[in-house]
Design a protein around this nucleic acid. Sequence first.
DNA 1: TAGGTGGAGATTGTATCCAATGTTCGGAAT
DNA 2: ATTCCGAACATTGGATACAATCTCCACCTA
Lengths: 220, 220
Amino acid sequence: MTRQQFRRPPTAQEAVLAELRRAIITGELRPGEQVLQDALAERFGVSRVPLREALKILEGEGQVIYRPHRGYFVAELDIDDLREVYRIRDLLETEAVRRAVPQITGDELAVMAAALEEVEHASASGDLATMTEANRRFHFELVEAARMPRLSRLVRVLWDATDVYRSLYYSDGDHRDAVHDEHRAVLEAVRGGDAEAAAVLLRTHRERAVSALERVLPTP
Amino acid sequence: MTRQQFRRPPTAQEAVLAELRRAIITGELRPGEQVLQDALAERFGVSRVPLREALKILEGEGQVIYRPHRGYFVAELDIDDLREVYRIRDLLETEAVRRAVPQITGDELAVMAAALEEVEHASASGDLATMTEANRRFHFELVEAARMPRLSRLVRVLWDATDVYRSLYYSDGDHRDAVHDEHRAVLEAVRGGDAEAAAVLLRTHRERAVSALERVLPTP
DNA sequence: TAGGTGGAGATTGTATCCAATGTTCGGAAT
DNA sequence: ATTCCGAACATTGGATACAATCTCCACCTA
């Protein structure tokens, strides 16, 4: 019998890491802003040690920039950076889709369909947080079906790099409808086993995101 | 006038990070081995605090695995992992070469040529460390000529992931000669502005590396 | 003997304290 | 006015001490 995986209370650094991610995505910590360690540690109710270890993880992901003796600063994205992120995602996700489609399971398809439902429902009721989360689940279920753990991780990091700005263009109603249509088309292509179609649809989907994000990015 | 960038004495975590990288690449810390923090901190002459922060960076790069309350373990590479690393490098480096070749500068070509010389010289005199370093310089000069900083960083991390095993197949004389020929061919293609040829040559070059590494990997 | 149990020791996780460095700002010299 | 110093302050870097957790093995039990 498979051994039950027991829950473990999260360590302080794990809790702080999750909080930091959330704070960065929601814009509570704004791009360019310095992360004042004393203040944040107190706010999270921990000492600076676990906070600093969490920041080191985020540094590795490019979410914060570290300057020795100066501190950590929330990363800012300029337009070149944005385009590079999406160019790399093109390369990685196209590969992921090609591998994923032929071997995707019924369970995974079901998760994707459910996530899609939830995106549309949350979109209708204006729940941006849920929408963002379900949207993420939809896309990552597909990427992870490729069974390339390193690639999945890289895509996740790149995804997170633009999460600060993502909610901004989701608020636009026209885009939302287009996004839903694209999602459904992707799901159909994946169901039908047409990897190339899915890859192309996803590239178009990303291109829409890039041009929307470009308009929304802080002026350089 | 451009402002002089003053040297700063490295912080303990920076020094420890460099030492850890070296220790992992040389095999001083062996794959699978636990990193005992007290012992290593004492050896480096620092407390556990900067050591742990350095380990967090390496965790993000996949060089060590972190298990809460258990510790850090030097990452092991199995054959699937190796193939995934090289598959991702194919995608990223092919893109890099396509972008780099049309815009590479004379200075960068000179650096590549010099690095290539040094590889061959070090190879002849059996200086594996220098050879590995110069080989790395050769390849990265090209990747960085693409001016895609994120992509460069990803390639570096993937490169490092297999560095533990790299020296093993360099010791083989036949491979060395083939490697030198391939290097020269790549340099010529880049000089001639033929990005596609360079991309193909580099893919072949990597394929040789993969099959050599597969033979040298610890049995799973 | 097989399996469970409970500590003792080893190791990691975090808080606190102090040192090192960077920043800011007032004032003096030119 | 401008620039150059320097001291006070803010912030980060690191060492130490202790708490929490895990590992391992002797011992007990069925």
